[in-house]
Computed example of a mutant assay.
Amino acid sequence: MSVPNDGSKERTLSHMNKDHQHDLSAILKHQLGISSPNPELTDISLSSLTIAANGKTYAVPISPPMASWSDRRTRLVEMTMSARSALGLGADGKPLVVRRFLAPSSFGAVVFAAVVFYFSCFAAVRAGLVEPGRPAWGVLEAVRFPFGPRGFRWVVERIFWGVVAIHVGECWWLDRTRLRRFGVGRGSWLWLAWMTRCFFEGVTTFKSFDGEVEGLGKRSE
């Protein structure tokens, strides 16, 4: 099936060049790694976009090719959204920048509190507060902790480095895949707040951060 000769292609080219030039820039950057502030869509077929930029002409593949010409709007929207997501851009073509911190909530708050409690237990064990004759020792005996207070100390100390490694790894991944990408500068108070939350809360921090980014994208439309 070919592109119909009814003026619809010309209207599509005109619309994209007039109202979506920043989206063409994003598509070109995402698909081919070419940066251009003012690209021009010069042709479109079922299998590719032809974009003029920087004095050259580039063919951007539509993969898979469109089944029919009537699919063009849907496919252009899909290519645009994919490019925005990959490049961290809003609907206006500008980079999305996270400027606020969100405190833990619901299940995330429970996880945060549980991890804080664990590190408090570790600190208590290392400080000698879980010893015979100490109040904590009596409490553990009263609640019949498995294998008693000695079992409690063994578990708390044995898992410490594993817990630290997991949470440090989560912080590293948050910084690498999200904080730097969305303009949260390393060492800033905002960076420290998100990193602290991630260290104690873990993976649910990612969902919260992604929700903030999604909200920024919607507000830019």
Rank of each mutant, 00 (worst) to 15 (best):
K94Y: 05
A67R: 14
I34Y: 03
N54I: 11
P146V: 09
R197T: 05
F199E: 03
E78A: 15
T196K: 00
H15C: 01
T12W: 11
D92A: 07
L190Y: 10
I159K: 01
F147W: 10
T57C: 07
F182G: 01
A109V: 11
P4F: 09
F147S: 10
F117K: 04
W69G: 02
A123I: 10
R100W: 11
G93D: 03
T12R: 07
V184Y: 04
R100M: 11
K207G: 10
V168Q: 00
G55W: 05
L216N: 03
I62F: 05
L32H: 05
T74A: 13
V77I: 15
R100V: 13
G133Q: 06
V97P: 02
V164D: 03
E157M: 11
G187F: 12
H20T: 00
G148K: 11
V77W: 07
V60Q: 02
R72C: 06
V163P: 00
H15I: 00
L190E: 02
F182C: 02
E40S: 09
F107H: 13
T42M: 08
S82Y: 07
F209T: 02
S8Q: 10
V97K: 15
A86E: 04
R181N: 03
G169P: 06
G162A: 09
G217Q: 09
L102H: 14
Y118R: 01
V143I: 15
A83P: 02
G93C: 06
Q21H: 08
V130R: 03
R219G: 01
C198N: 09
V203H: 06
T204C: 05
G185K: 15
F107E: 14
P39C: 09
R72W: 14
R84Q: 13
V203D: 00
L32C: 06
S8Y: 04
R176D: 04
G33V: 10
V115F: 13
R84I: 08
I51T: 03
M195T: 14
G169Q: 09
A86D: 02
G151E: 07
L89Y: 04
G217C: 04
A86Y: 07
H22N: 05
P132E: 05
V111F: 05
A67N: 13
R150M: 10
S63R: 12
D23L: 14
W173D: 08
S105M: 13
S208T: 15
V97T: 14
V168I: 15
H167V: 07
A83L: 08
F122T: 07
G215C: 07
L87G: 03
M81F: 12
S208L: 13
P149Q: 08
V156P: 06
P149A: 09
D92N: 14
K9H: 05
A26D: 01
G202M: 06
A142N: 08
C198H: 02
S2R: 12
D6L: 11
W194I: 09
W191N: 07
D6I: 10
G169L: 14
V139Q: 01
E40G: 00
A83I: 06
Y58N: 05
P95H: 09
V125A: 09
S48D: 08
R176L: 14
D210P: 00
V156D: 02
A83T: 04
